[in-house]
Design a protein around this nucleic acid. Structure first.
Lengths: 343, 343
DNA sequence: AGTTAGCACTCAACTTAAAAGAGTGCTAAC
DNA sequence: GTTAGCACTCTTTTAAGTTGAGTGCTAACT
């Protein structure tokens, strides 16, 4: 649906004013905010048409207009000014995500926390997916008579480790056996091929050694699983209370939804664009029906590997937050590429 | 302040009724809840005295009574029935914290999450403190041309690891040097003696090798720091919304407070009893003035090493939640002792 | 001295009515 | 196509009663 230039101006003004104040916008308010020399009656006529088109709605007969989800959508797609990010804001973001010598998890946790603080929204991020990775290396480090640490390195540079307890005292022949198993059965294997079925056949093939080796083998499998799964890092849940009125009764449901991780992971993974905005009911989840999600995806070695996003009320300040989320996400992508590549 | 038996009965009834309903309790309501054969007028007289003593208060002249913090305190200290935990609840708790082969962090995170779900409160726990621990062992595992993983084991059984990136390609002489430094300067050292000052003198003493060794040495120091610090595991923030009315305007402040970790860590560490209940303003933090904290401490090898607690409104169900928190905490203590001891 | 019936009193909470005000839609003129 | 003007709608605010739960006090009773 194409709109006349004047209608676009009016729609943009309504959206921006409503985002700022949270109050329905009337024709007179609009008149003074707009640099158009028409009367309020004309604006009323225009607004009536915008209601008919489905871009605006009235809470009740004698109130001003508020944007519908479609109105926000049109605004985001066509009207929103994409002013470049302030240098000072860039500087601030750079300072916020700079973490030397940290794990990807720590970087992303920090990024979520920082983004939440900066935007006053809840923020989420997913750790790089290990979908297409293979096992590059496995090491065993004895740390006690029965305890060792297993370290797994994937082809994508992810390093995971886990303490592993043996049922019997460790000795060098056991460790040698373990390395043999690793060599013959794990190295080079895609992470997603390590399922319970393959594990069972592997254990079955070990014969006598099965019993002592099971803790080690299953630890490797656990690590592979862990390296493959994306984790969801969550920050700023408390900010949901900040916009409590806007979320209405879904505030509690929203918090609970964020806590669950899995659906968020899917939500973020489902969009393949460079960045994406989902407004209200555009999200499939009913817990998000009063929320908008602004998300961007970071690349590692050019591959789309994870996402960072914020979740706020539908009347979130799209124009200024979208660039921030994108900038931060790119920065994190660079940082992660660096972290994961210099082995 | 000693109370007559009848006053105690009345106080207990008021507390329990108010905890259940959240409404001020009147003399007639009390009459039917109590198995005392007196008139409502008598109860009114008694309640008036309880108000004078500071155990009850009236929101306004013509309302029933609600307990003051002192009232809750008297109830918790003297009146609360300590009925033993239901077998089914015990079973449920046991299932909730059983985690085989997990790290202390994972165990405590799970425990917090579970406790929050079970009690409908926010739950926190602190990881074992490494205050009196020493460095028992340090290992270096090469995983790439410039990357290695450093593994640190403390005398208390805590294992921490961290990826470490060198500025130059690794070679065996560097690794040997690293192990020499570890041997001469780190092994046996109490964790809390590794501060920046000692690090600086150490680096200074390394001469030529300083530049290449700094990443390794500081990684060890980071790990020691990490092993010493207690982490705060948080669960069920969303439950704060469940009792929103009771928290009043402090709901947001409370959520923000929980997120900060550090003050909670101190709050939990400050009580040296086996278990402890802090009611409303008894907590030093004004963010907790409408909240009560029920906490218990777990022992590892008989030493008090960390805490688990729940945070709810002051009208929390003390009688049934205190035993749950204690039981769960003991269980977690056993689990951790087991996990950290079998090296 | 402790208990109780009785009653006047208080005060939040609810109900109702009226008034105010913001904003609209429509009509008729420009 | 635009606009002034006006009747109309519907929320919000204010005010005034009304209700009802619960109290405190007094005077009589045990």
């Amino acid at each position: 649906m194409e709109l006349s230039q004047r209608k676009e101006k009016i729609l943009a003004a309504v959206v921006e004013h409503y985002i700022k104040t949270g109050e329905p916008v009337g024709s007179k308010t609009l008149l003074s905010a707009l640099d158009i020399t028409v009367s309020s009656a004309t604006i009323r006529n225009e607004m009536a048409e915008l209601v008919a088109f489905g871009y605006l709605e009235q809470p009740h007969t004698s109130a001003g207009r508020i944007p519908t989800n479609e109105g926000y959508r049109y605004y985001v797609d066509h009207l929103m000014g994409v002013r470049p990010l302030d240098e000072s804001v860039k500087r601030q973001i750079e300072a916020g995500v700079s973490l030397k010598n940290a794990s990807p998890e720590a970087i992303l946790a920090k990024a979520s926390e920082f983004l939440a603080d900066m935007t006053d929204c809840a923020a989420v991020s997913t750790t790089p997916s290990g979908e297409n990775a293979t096992i590059k290396r496995v090491e065993f480090v004895p740390v006690g008579t029965r305890t060792g640490m297993i370290v797994l390195l994937t082809s994508t540079g992810v390093i995971k480790s886990k303490v592993c307890r043996s049922d019997v005292d460790l000795n060098s022949s056991m460790i040698e056996k373990f390395y043999n198993i690793v060599k013959s059965s794990f190295l080079g294997l895609p992470l997603d091929e390590i399922d319970t079925a393959t594990l069972q056949t592997l254990v079955a093939s070990m014969g006598m050694d099965a019993l002592t080796m099971i803790p080690f083998v299953s630890a490797v499998a656990d690590l592979a699983q862990e390296a493959m799964q994306t984790m969801v890092m969550l920050g700023g849940q408390s900010n949901i209370l900040r916009y409590r009125e806007d979320y209405g009764t879904t505030a509690y449901e929203l918090m609970d939804f964020l806590r669950r991780g899995e659906p968020i992971s899917q939500l973020l993974a489902n969009s393949k664009e460079d960045f994406d905005v989902k407004i209200g009911g555009e999200n499939k989840y009913k817990q998000l029906e009063n929320s908008s999600v602004i998300m961007a995806h970071y690349n590692i070695d050019g591959d789309n590997r994870g996402s960072i996003g914020i979740i706020g009320p539908t009347r979130i300040d799209y124009a200024s937050l979208i660039p921030s989320v994108r900038y931060l996400t790119n920065l994190v992508g660079e940082l992660l590429t660096q972290t994961l590549n210099d082995d």
